[in-house]
Design a binder for these strands. Structure first.
Lengths: 230, 230
DNA sequence: ATAAATTTTTAGACAAATCTAAAAATTGGT
DNA sequence: ACCAATTTTTAGATTTGTCTAAAAATTTAT
């Protein structure tokens, strides 16, 4: 048994604590990014005052660093805990889709419950049963027992072929004009985008997003990351 | 969807409430047996005063009948809820043993967690994946979606006469030491057991199992259920 | 039948996780 | 640098499930 797992075993965490750690990880993902109280509150669908209370408790437990009015960062231990929860969540998602015929939109709610089941043997056996998958049904990477994982293969929208479908996962250019353009056109993280056509003349794209057809320039498309489906 | 399932869907129950209902069912099993506050407290490993509080709450919700100083009985709805929890618990136990190589003594703790996962589709698909089993790994019957189940015609090994043959179908004692003993001696559900001899002095038995002769105490034999062969 | 023993309930407290409302600190615009 | 807006924290309350200690009801024994 690794050193990490000894720590995880000793730590007894409530469901609520685990959800905070998971959300904080998703908002930052490492030990150096400061996450604000309000951002956490919004993701947790709770009030900032509740977040402050929980931040103090989790800092007390050594899972994050907290400084008044500054925000929090995960400790190394906090990252390990987050990865172990995410590992469980994503493995359960694969299980539900592969073994129990769940559709992609049905898995999340159930996986949110299953990720809190406490049994090392359980999740390791599920992992084995599934053949040690590397990605979940949404294409997100599944951390190994030791917390290692491969970042998913995302690509620029401009590199997608005609008729392909992807989910918007990030931007390359982070300038204000570009982000404003995205806002104005209601292009947001998580949106599904289908490439309808690519114009030979200027490589501009005709895409389907939010059930609406939209034409965007090659320059726009070459600054949007998508995760290709299938 | 049956009427019952409509009710179960509307009822939102906490984990603690579900555990009370399950324990009360195990102590009585029907709508007419009065269960005492102390008995529940002992099984729940809690104090009688806590049981009183919870009894009032569950009566309020229509799951049981409660009269001061008398005890409680389950309502019809309470029985249905209990059966649905027991169904989940036992199906998960089969899953853990059949699909994930858990041993008899490892399943209980994890099934205690899994039985509270809320998803009708999840448990129905697990049921299908397992081929709609009728009995769990301890030989206890699994209620159907409609709450019906067949108690098995079984008897204690200690009540079998010399030279009789039976098939192991369950255990009376489900404690870890007993289950570990069975694992160690390769006594498992489905094994055929022949009673070779019964010692007058201490009622210990000499049995034939897996084509091997084995001596077991009367105490062991009185905690093993077998189904007698014609 | 009545006193003693037991069981059950009540009353009041506590911990966890949340909330609201108000106070304090930080940030941003001019 | 200062005022206004925003963010964050504090203080105090609420809910759920539990506890202890004491009171009340029931059961048992003589």
């Amino acid at each position: 048994m690794t050193n990490k797992n000894v720590f995880l075993k000793k730590l007894c965490m409530t469901r609520s604590e685990e959800n905070y750690i998971k959300i904080i990880f998703h908002l930052g993902g490492n030990t150096s990014t400061l996450i604000s109280t309000n951002a956490i509150a919004e993701q947790m669908a709770t009030k900032p005052s509740s977040v402050t209370d929980m931040s103090k408790k989790l800092a007390e437990k050594g899972l994050l660093h907290y400084k008044r009015y500054q925000g929090v960062t995960l400790t190394e231990l906090g990252v390990k805990v987050a990865l172990s929860i995410i590992r469980k969540h994503r493995l359960w998602e694969v299980f539900l889709v592969e073994k129990l015929d769940f559709t992609w939109d049905e898995v999340h709610e159930v996986a949110e419950q299953l990720e809190h089941i406490k049994s090392e043997k359980l999740i390791d056996q599920i992992d084995a049963l599934l053949g040690y998958p590397k990605y979940d049904p949404h294409g997100d990477p599944i951390p190994s027992k030791d917390g290692e994982f491969l970042e998913r293969d995302k690509q620029l929208l401009s590199d997608m072929p005609k008729q392909s479908i992807g989910v918007c996962v990030g931007v390359k250019d982070t300038s204000t004009p570009f982000l404003k353009f995205l806002d104005k056109n209601q292009i947001a993280l998580g949106n599904t985008i289908k490439v309808l056509d690519i114009e030979d003349f200027d490589q501009s794209l005709s895409i389907l997003i939010n059930n609406k057809k939209l034409n965007i320039s090659h320059q726009i498309a070459s600054n949007l990351y998508v995760k290709k489906q299938n």
